[in-house]
């Protein structure tokens, strides 16, 4: 008998949100609705982060995905032509399906199977180094921590932004000339 407490109920609610949202994304013919469903799904993932005692990640998930990516997606959706009545069918379904099955199998074998049944993983203690957001901050910028990845992340973001500007600006100028 599973004992029903808040976290158990919350887990199932978030599971339904995540999977239901994902289902909505793949079954919707309307791109904007698909985006909204994707946000529902990602919101469920944020809930899992809370359940795993990582509230900072949950807030980041909501802030970055729902606050920024969703907006970006809707802007991107409006860049496509005839977005509500897509009549182009994606025909190469079999290779994609195979890829998805393989990925799922890898997840099951590699991640879910080892911990299935036992509750030991649940009771694993939190990391000794990073317990709070403050510790995370120390770890991010201290010499013996992750200062190099931290700076590389900044460099990556810079690269992404410059690349995007270069690509998008050309498109914009063509548009203006027309």
């Amino acid at each position: 008998m599973i004992q029903f407490d808040f976290s158990t109920i919350a887990f199932f609610v978030f599971a339904v949100l995540t999977l239901g949202g994902a289902l909505g994304v793949v079954t919707n013919r309307n791109l904007f609705r698909g985006t909204i469903w994707l946000m529902v799904s990602l919101f469920g993932v944020a809930g899992f982060y809370v359940l795993l005692s990582a509230p900072f990640l949950a807030a980041v998930q909501v802030l970055v995905y729902i606050g920024a990516i969703a907006i970006l997606f809707t802007f991107a959706v409006m860049l496509t032509r005839s977005l509500t009545r897509l009549n182009v069918r994606y025909t190469r379904l079999w290779p994609s399906a195979l890829g998805a099955v393989l990925l799922f199998a890898m997840l099951v074998i590699g991640v879910i199977w080892p911990v299935f049944g036992g509750n030991e993983m649940y009771s694993l203690p939190l990391s000794d180094v990073v317990r709070t957001t403050s510790d995370l901050g120390v770890a991010l910028v201290s010499g013996e921590g992750y200062v190099l990845p931290f700076e590389v992340a900044s460099l990556l973001l810079t690269g992404a932004m410059i690349g995007a500007i270069v690509i998008a600006r050309d498109a914009d100028e063509e548009e203006l000339e027309q």
């Binding site: 900072f56 980041v60 802030l63 970055v64 606050g67 920024a68 990516i69 907006i71 970006l72 802007f75 991107a76 409006m78 860049l79 496509t80 032509r81 957001t133 403050s134 510790d135 995370l136 901050g137 120390v138 991010l140 910028v141 931290f150 992340a153 900044s154 973001l157 810079t158 992404a160 932004m161 995007a164 500007i165 998008a168 600006r169 498109a171 914009d172 548009e175």
Partner: peptide
């Protein structure tokens, strides 16, 4: 179809958003 300009703004915002998120732990500590 809308202009690509909106998309650029969205993209620059996204980059800044991620940056700010990474700065929060730094500010807390």
């Amino acid at each position: 179809q809308f202009r690509v300009q909106y998309y650029i703004y969205g993209l620059i915002f996204l980059v800044f958003d991620v940056e700010m998120v990474l700065l929060f732990p730094w500010a807390v500590a």
